[in-house]
Design a binder for these strands. Sequence first.
RNA 1: GCCCCGUUGGUCUAGCGGCCUAGGACGCCACCCUUUCAAGGUGGAGAUCACGGGUUCGAAUCCCGUACGGGGCACCA
Length: 492
Amino acid sequence: MVRTRLAPSPTGEDLHIGNLYTALINWVFAKQNNGKFIVRIEDTDRKRLIEGAEERILKTLKEFGLEYDEGPDVGGPYGPYRQSERLEIYKKHALELVEKGYAYFCFCSPERLQKIRKEQQKKGIIPPKYDRYCLKRYSKQEALEKFEKGEKAVIRLKIPEKSEISFVDEIRGKITFKSDLIDDQVLLKSDGFPTYHLAVVVDDYLMKITHVIRAEEWISSTPKHVLLYTAFGWELPKFIHLPILRNPDKSKLSKRKNPVWASWYLKEGFLPEAILNYLALMGWSHPEGKEKFSIEELVKIFDIKRIKTVGPVFDVQKLEWLNGEYLREAKSEKLKAKILEYYKKYHDLDLPEELVEKTIPLIRERVKKLSDYMFYCKFFFERPKKYQMDLSPFKDLIEKMKSALEKIPEHEWKAEKIGEVMVKLYESLPEEVKNNVSRSKFFMVLRVAITGQKITPPLNESMEILGREECIERLENVKFQMTNDKSMTKSK
RNA sequence: GCCCCGUUGGUCUAGCGGCCUAGGACGCCACCCUUUCAAGGUGGAGAUCACGGGUUCGAAUCCCGUACGGGGCACCA
């Protein structure tokens, strides 16, 4: 049975978007093979541990619908799924390796390691490697005794000399490394915690992971893992290294240059399904060239061998386009629910359901992200405090608009009627006024007077929704002293 | 520096020896629609397929170099 896994470290604020990408591929691959997707928390670095990160990572994963079959909070037959709770397992395995002669104790201080590294660099020995001082100095027995007496020690992997280590990457083919270039990797740290390398191999084996699907940055350390598998006498899993998502400058996607936390995209008003869809397009393409497809379809059609090996640039603009596609195609009821939920969850706003419902047809073609909703619609919920245009030259005009609107009886207050009346008003204006105020300018004045904004949903429909009394009152209460508000008048 | 992985328009990509005078999408520009902004429609600019050698009747596609980009070289993952 296929078993894949995501192994995040709780060392950031939240799930990294690159991890979300890896999670997606792992999830989809497991699903399409009727396998299991497992989450394992790699919290072996106590120094970088961030409070609450694990919870946030798991929560985000769920928000994206990437449910896992086994994990720290849901359990499973191969737990615990938190590495900090598996310390004895790693120790036992590390000791086993020492016993078999594949690893050895090292008692060197960090200072000494630092020193020899510097010396080697000076001599041009690159990359620097541990000099095996402790391996030469202590016999296996002596070392073990020292260790058992409680002396601070690490266990290092003894990399075989002058040999080649190769493995097959399912999308790149065979990759070979020379063993002489690899340092005697620390497997067990002096604090009793394993390093990543020991922990992944032991856990992937014990948890019966069949396909190790992870980011490309792990290629260089895979030979160490291969060595471990063979030292233990374990069968290798399949390795698949995914391309790394990049910043626009092509460097590895980083928080300095891009928003990287998956939850940030949610807060921005992107839909989980759109984000996942976009991510699927990174390094992979639909055989028919489709750009928009559901995750169910992805599961059906995904082919891991079609993944490219070049690191794609994460383009937020294209994500916005895709997100807009999802928003436009959503059923009104659904769109409304999403908007309501979004503003409640991320802005602690309880928008009136009925009003939101009425505005949906006006904004569905306009919003790219859920957060665009209020950009267009805030005037529905509150009277304009600022006006994006100096209305003082149009005092008389606004007065005329108001009286024209007042002539519309309540029961005829419909978008069509409003439009008709306003067009008539414009037509009836004296020529010299019309020469100064174009028809579109005329409506812009009305627009800003009613909404305060220059960019709005269709005006007549908006006015219909606002209601007769409200519109008339707004025209009455227009504030004309806006010219000094540079930030508003300069907008555009 | 060393090792590994890559290299098709600004970006995501199709392409797996002849269908390519390189196709699609995002973005950009123009026009149409239009009461703002979008959406939609039409059209357009933009790639000597990184470069140089081979192999072949024929190469974006295969091979070798070079350049460039990325990743890795921790008691971090």
